[in-house]
Design a protein around this nucleic acid. Structure first.
Lengths: 161, 161
DNA sequence: GCACCAATGCAATATTATAACATTATATTC
DNA sequence: GAATATAATGTTATAATATTGCATTGGTGC
């Protein structure tokens, strides 16, 4: 698990994400276009899930001509389809994925104080999900887990909720 | 686990849900008003998660003067707060809860063919979630799991997806 | 060049949810 | 029962999120 808290070198996270994205697109002959790269970079600007319209505004502020919603949503769809980001349904927001290729799984601990979404290793939870599904003869396509609470760091500094 | 597939006597589900709701409201001195009962009944009209605006239309068709969105959303909020229903974030929809009192947990198997949402016993998955959270010193408030796939019944009848 | 297909631009609109404030109903106290 | 307080609902408007449909651009292969 990467360290994702304030002290970490976040530029490293961004760089790695872009690297992984370029690799993946090259390998699968996908086009990592300008807008897709910009949106991915914006999603990776922190470990907090970010909304589509917030992305849109950030791009507008970066000198880009303000993109229309479909432009952003299409880039997000591309990134989702290829497992480069996850959608956090309970927040209507998007967050970078550490391990492209697991598009169908996203298990997150989301802090209600600092908003950071920590992605869990699928192996921690998936066996239980798989077993429960099997019990019902249910075949799993996707499984998203969104755990909301208070992270370790915030527990130290926050008195109460 | 209740049987929730076509052959079951669904009126029984509705009746039980209403009974539980009345009990719970009485015990906690909450008001189970007309609109709340109507919304709960509508949510329970099937085991498929239903959207707020669909509820609104159903109520309108049942002779009720078409309620405004806030009316429906307030009733839904009341039902959510008291654990009588769950919200399925990935569908923007609501579904009845079998065991009021577990408002903070909702683990579902959702069939992409028949849309039925089967609520899992929390005990099947929660231990794994709890352990993963503990590993991160993360304190859990709510945990929602939405597994999408194909249910046993549809697997038999559906060729492919 | 030309035909094709994917990607993007653009305008309009659909869908989901909430804010703000007025009104009504219910309960409590006197 | 009137006076008050509180909770619930009604009403209007609007915010926030997401998609549709169609025009345009841009690269790819022939």
């Amino acid at each position: 698990m990467h360290n994702i808290y304030p002290q970490h070198n976040h530029q490293h996270c961004i760089d790695e994400a872009l690297l992984r994205a370029r690799d993946l697109c090259q390998q699968h002959q996908l086009k990592f276009t300008t807008i897709r790269e910009l949106v991915l970079t914006t999603v990776w600007s922190s470990h907090k899930p970010i909304g589509a319209y917030t992305i849109l505004e950030k791009l507008a502020k970066e000198g880009l001509r303000r993109p229309a919603p479909p432009t952003v949503y299409r880039a997000l769809d591309f990134l989702l389809d290829n497992g480069l980001i996850h959608r956090i349904a309970s927040l209507n927001a998007f967050v970078g994925c550490n391990e492209p290729g697991h598009a169908h799984q996203g298990h997150f601990l989301i802090c209600r104080h600092c908003q950071v979404a920590l992605e869990l290793d699928t192996q921690l939870i998936y066996p239980a999900i798989s077993a429960a599904a099997k019990q019902q003869n249910f075949s799993v396509d996707t499984a998203s887990l969104e755990v909301v609470g208070c992270c370790a760091r915030c527990s130290e500094t926050v008195s109460n909720d």
